[in-house]
Design a protein around this nucleic acid. Structure first.
Lengths: 218, 218
DNA sequence: GTCAATAATCTTGTATACAAAAATAGTCTT
DNA sequence: AAGACTATTTTTGTATACAAGATTATTGAC
């Protein structure tokens, strides 16, 4: 009975979009889904609107809600923007970061390395995420940090896929160390460039992954 | 009866928030507003959720919708992000811009200048907006262009205020010319720096304006 | 058999009705 | 008189009912 119901439904739908239960172009039937979730159409419609806002669903007036998976082009664009935003965070953070935060970055990196050695990709993923969020925060601009976090979250399912690529985690670690070094030495442009490259390469890896999948399917 | 009703209401409420009819912290009563607009609570709640998504309203579960005007700090942060995003657009556009778009930028600038000479601030404002949107588009990244446009729109009411400052329009024109020059010569960093400065100064002007208003009120 | 027009059905958008949680007012106790 | 507890009243969140546009099926003409 709380407002949370729409949130719960939105999350569940999000999950189903990510895991492929719903694929691109599918229409999300309000009555069918509301029955499935055991709620009325009202909170379900609320959830759909929330998904529309985060771009997962397109709401066409009088027609319904359609799943809208970003295509390869749009994904590349989103990764490019993510790279640029992280670069900005890094440039600002190089001037504003606190000693405590630097310590936390070192800590996150150490745990990342430990996760690689222990072959625990999930732990690696979590610590990697923490690493990036610390930099967002240390930009000293909470609006920027919030926007960066939102895009980061939106790209989550796509970034995760290409973590499995051989050697990517080791390479990523090396890049993390260069980033921390630049931040530690207060070098804005170096930090920005390192972060831009670090994120942009994810987009590129994703691109080649997509291309490989596509050619394999033919 | 179209879905548009919620859009219309959202826009109307947005207007009232901007023009000061509703001020920061005000609770937006669903029944009162729905009566006022002559609709039921359903589309009105939809409109509130839309406003919540663009940050103008905070939706507290079981409590209601509260107007949330960004304070000076948050505004400064938003202008900083706008400046950085425009810088990114400029850097990418310097490499990707078309001749036709360059021509359009010249055209927009010419009309801006004409508007200044004719003392038509509204025309100036429209052409200035066009100038910036062309650069967003020419970043060659439609996701970036869309994000830039969204933030631009959100800052609209605050940017407009400080256009009235003496000499700002002339200074702005000079900056526009430098920006076009950098784009024309394909100089990414020069374009980025020029755009960053051009937008950042708006935030700073706004800041001093706010400070002036505040000290005048004491 | 194909196409078009129209009727039936389905689905969305909106209104109203109801339930539960907050806010408020009032009463009782100390 | 102050504070706490309870009852009342608002107000939000959800369900259901209804209206109108969109979709599909059916029928008729060519």
């Amino acid at each position: 009975m709380e407002q949370r119901r729409a949130d719960i439904i939105a999350e569940a739908l999000e999950e189903r979009i990510f895991d492929g239960t719903f694929s691109d172009g599918d229409r999300l039937d309000e009555v069918r889904l509301s029955e499935q979730f055991g709620v009325s159409r009202t909170p379900l419609r609320e959830a759909l609107q929330r998904l529309a806002r985060s771009g997962l669903v397109e709401l066409i007036p009088r027609r319904g809600a359609f799943v809208r998976q970003p295509g390869p082009v749009e994904l590349m664009e989103m990764f490019e923007v993510m790279a640029e935003i992280e670069a900005v965070c890094g440039r600002l953070a190089a001037l504003r970061i606190s000693d405590a935060a630097l310590q936390e970055l070192h800590d996150a990196n150490a745990k990342c390395q430990a996760a690689i050695d222990a072959l625990e990709p999930d732990t690696y993923y979590i610590e990697n995420e923490r690493f990036h969020h610390i930099i967002y925060q240390q930009s000293g601009n909470s609006f920027l940090a919030s926007e960066a976090g939102a895009l980061h979250r939106r790209l989550k399912p796509f970034r995760r896929q290409q973590l499995r690529l051989r050697g990517r985690m080791d390479q990523s670690m090396a890049e993390h160390r260069i980033i921390v070094e630049a931040l530690e030495n207060g070098q804005p442009e170096a930090a920005a460039d390192a972060l831009r490259g670090h994120v942009a390469i994810q987009g590129e890896k994703f691109h080649s992954l997509m291309a490989a999948l596509k050619s394999a399917a033919e």
